[in-house]
Design a protein around this nucleic acid. Sequence first.
DNA 1: ACCCTAATTAGAAATATTGCTAAAAAATAT
DNA 2: ATATTTTTTAGCAATATTTCTAATTAGGGT
Lengths: 108, 108
Amino acid sequence: MRRDVFQAIADPTRREIITLVSKQSLNLNAVAENFDMSRQAISLHIKILQECGLILIKQEGRDRYCSIQPKKLSEVADWIEPFRKLWEARFDKVDDILKKLKTKKNGK
Amino acid sequence: MRRDVFQAIADPTRREIITLVSKQSLNLNAVAENFDMSRQAISLHIKILQECGLILIKQEGRDRYCSIQPKKLSEVADWIEPFRKLWEARFDKVDDILKKLKTKKNGK
DNA sequence: ACCCTAATTAGAAATATTGCTAAAAAATAT
DNA sequence: ATATTTTTTAGCAATATTTCTAATTAGGGT
């Protein structure tokens, strides 16, 4: 059973949970209220997010408050980074073409 | 069957394929040579990557060359971006603390 | 026409994922 | 002590994923 960040954010429900919890610390019930899904299912998603280090759970009485551990997402950002050059380079090419067209126009 | 970029990059083999193909266009066999896995399995991974728009397949005779479509990864980058502030903000806080400690030291 | 190579499709198996309901555990309140 | 609230665990089912081997399709060369 792989339990890494890439796997964790593959599920849309889990991505929503991350977004929710990034705004404010919420207990499990509060998280579950935002979804049309049983608490048990949300509980499992939160467990997965915790296991891969994306959220931190702090017990307060009978509540467990979930907060984001955003640094963990840098693993994904770091993996993507080298590819950014490629997609931005392509924009540069379009820019180049547009610039040349403009120059031609002005030259007329 | 979800077939989105997040799902696609969740698999480590597929992430490796993306890295490989980002360096040079390769046909399926050439891709498969890099893995300890059957060609059929690689074929399926490539199909998934193609279906979600992460790679482009160009038929040349009996070969199918795979090349990267890096722009598609910006979907992931865009989703992560708002969280970057959070993890970088935390670094800023550490920076602040360090700066204050330094000032104190100098003040002695 | 026949063979080789590249790749996909089909069929099967193992395992993982995602969800449910019901029951149990743990903390708090009455 | 008993009831309530929050959360987890257990048991179950449906579906998806990942891999394999074997068979098929399709292009190119002899």
